[in-house]
Amino acid sequence: MAMPEIVTTMLGASGVGKTTLLTSIYEQFSKIQEVNFEFKPDSATEEILQKNLQDLQSMGDEIIATEGTGGIAGTSAVAGPESLPEFAFYLSKTERQLLKLSFRDYPGSYVLKDNPVGREYLKGLLKKSAAVIISIDTPAMIEPHKLDPLNSKNWDLLEGRSGRWHDAKNHPEEILDLFKAAYTRLKEPKLVILAPVKCETYVQTSESAKKLLGCIKDKYSPLLKFLSDPSRSNNIAVVTTPIQTVGCLFFSRYFIEDFNKPQFVFKKNSSMDTYNPKDNDHLLRYLLSFLLKRHNDQQIYKRSPILSAVRGVFQQESMFEQAIKQFVKTRKTTDGFTILQGNELLEV
Rank of each mutant, 00 (worst) to 15 (best):
M272L: 12
R164I: 01
F29N: 03
R164Q: 09
P85M: 04
K278Y: 00
K100D: 01
N235Y: 04
Q326C: 07
L224D: 04
E159I: 10
L291A: 05
A181W: 04
K40G: 00
L125I: 00
T23A: 13
S308C: 10
T330P: 00
A130L: 13
G74H: 09
I243R: 01
Q263L: 13
A323N: 08
A168E: 13
F179N: 06
V117E: 15
P81Y: 05
S271V: 11
G312C: 03
I324C: 08
S304L: 04
L157S: 04
I134E: 10
L249K: 07
I32F: 00
P144D: 11
L158C: 01
H171T: 01
L22P: 02
R331I: 02
P107K: 07
L53V: 02
D148G: 02
P196Q: 03
T245Y: 04
L99Y: 09
G312F: 02
F327I: 08
N170D: 13
E188F: 14
F337D: 10
Y202S: 03
S109W: 05
L178C: 04
F266C: 01
T205H: 08
L178T: 02
I306W: 01
V117D: 10
S152L: 08
S83V: 07
K219N: 01
L11M: 05
K31Y: 05
I48E: 15
T330D: 14
D281F: 10
V117S: 11
Y121P: 00
V348A: 12
K261C: 00
T240Y: 11
E82A: 13
